[in-house]
């Protein structure tokens, strides 16, 4: 109760948001920049059809490889499609692949880590060895091979990226569960007569998600990079779908002939969004780190 005076009353979250953002900009400028970048791209993705000046898939043989101008801000590509509109729609795809992919990774990794950490013994051992084995392959190569083997559909790409990323979440959750398993409140929950199911999902899981949630922004950045890489080497999303990796790939051919804008702008968009997620991820990790949460008492 002694601290009640300093914490704002519930419900005022929205009211104090501008103030919080100002404090954030001053004290954690990188986090603020990350949030800003991700926020802008999210808005672009959300309102892509409203914002983009042209149809991203409309080939126009009369406007092939036009340099940036008032009409085509970022120029046009080899099929005469507007690069700016394609980048905006590409952000839609970037989120559309990365978010479900990370969701898949969590959906697979979190229960695995939870189960292995709680049970210990053989299942834990098997999971650890399996994850070690997976780590032998660089994850991008692994994703490439899997997509090549299963087919290039959007669904497959999402599942493969999620699958390759799942061990990271499994490890994070397992580490938390290992320490939580012997914590005071879990022992209390057992003593109170909780069923095993309740102990796992009501008492352990919500407390074991901290590391996984902290990592999720970084994993989103990684997923965007992987999906772009897959598209770039030609096993990911196929042209003419406006995917940044695929656009860079197409633009790379024009680079030598001087039409730099075709590859540069999607490249910049990719770098910027990945950077934004990484900045945000770092900040979230810092913020969730218990050692950092020591204010004035």
């Amino acid at each position: 109760m002694s601290d009640a005076a300093s914490s704002p009353p519930a419900g005022s979250w929205l009211r104090t948001l501008p103030l919080r953002l100002r404090v954030m900009a001053r004290h954690a400028p990188t986090a603020f920049a990350g949030a800003l970048i991700v926020g802008v791209f999210a808005l672009l993705a959300l309102f892509a059809p409203l914002i983009s000046p042209h149809d991203p898939m409309q080939a126009n043989p009369y406007d092939v490889l036009k340099p940036p101008s008032g009409q085509f801000w970022f120029g046009t590509d080899g099929a005469g499609m507007d690069v700016f509109s394609r980048i905006i729609h590409g952000s839609c795809l970037a989120f559309g692949i990365a978010v479900p992919a990370v969701a898949v990774a969590m959906l697979i990794g979190v229960p695995l880590g939870l189960f292995a950490g709680y049970r210990g013994g053989m299942p834990d051992e098997v999971l650890l060895r399996a994850m070690d084995a997976l780590r032998i392959f660089p994850s991008i190569i692994l994703a490439l091979a899997l997509v090549a083997a299963t087919g290039k559909s959007l669904g497959n790409i999402i599942i493969v990226i999620g699958l390759v990323d799942a061990p990271i979440f499994a490890r994070l959750v397992r580490a938390e569960v290992l320490s939580l398993r012997h914590s005071g409140f879990v022992e209390s929950a057992v003593a109170a007569g909780n069923t095993r199911w309740r102990i796992l999902f009501i008492h352990i899981l919500p407390n074991a998600m901290r590391g996984a949630l902290a990592q999720s922004a970084v994993r989103l950045a990684w997923s965007i990079r992987v999906s772009a890489t897959l598209a770039f080497v030609g096993v990911g999303v196929q042209p003419p779908t406006p995917e940044w990796g695929a656009m860079i790939r197409q633009g790379a051919e024009q680079m030598v002939t001087g039409e730099w804008w075709v590859a540069l702008f999607p490249g910049l968009a990719l770098v910027l969004l990945v950077l934004g997620f990484n900045l945000l991820g770092d900040a979230v990790q810092d913020w969730l780190d218990p050692r950092r949460r020591t204010g004035v008492r």
Binding site: S7, T16, L19, R20, R26, H27, V296
Partner: peptide, 14 residues
């Protein structure tokens, strides 16, 4: 005294 800021960036003195 301990001098710091609260979550809203207001100065706090303990």
């Amino acid at each position: 005294h301990f001098v710091g800021e609260d979550r809203l960036g207001r100065p706090v003195t303990a």
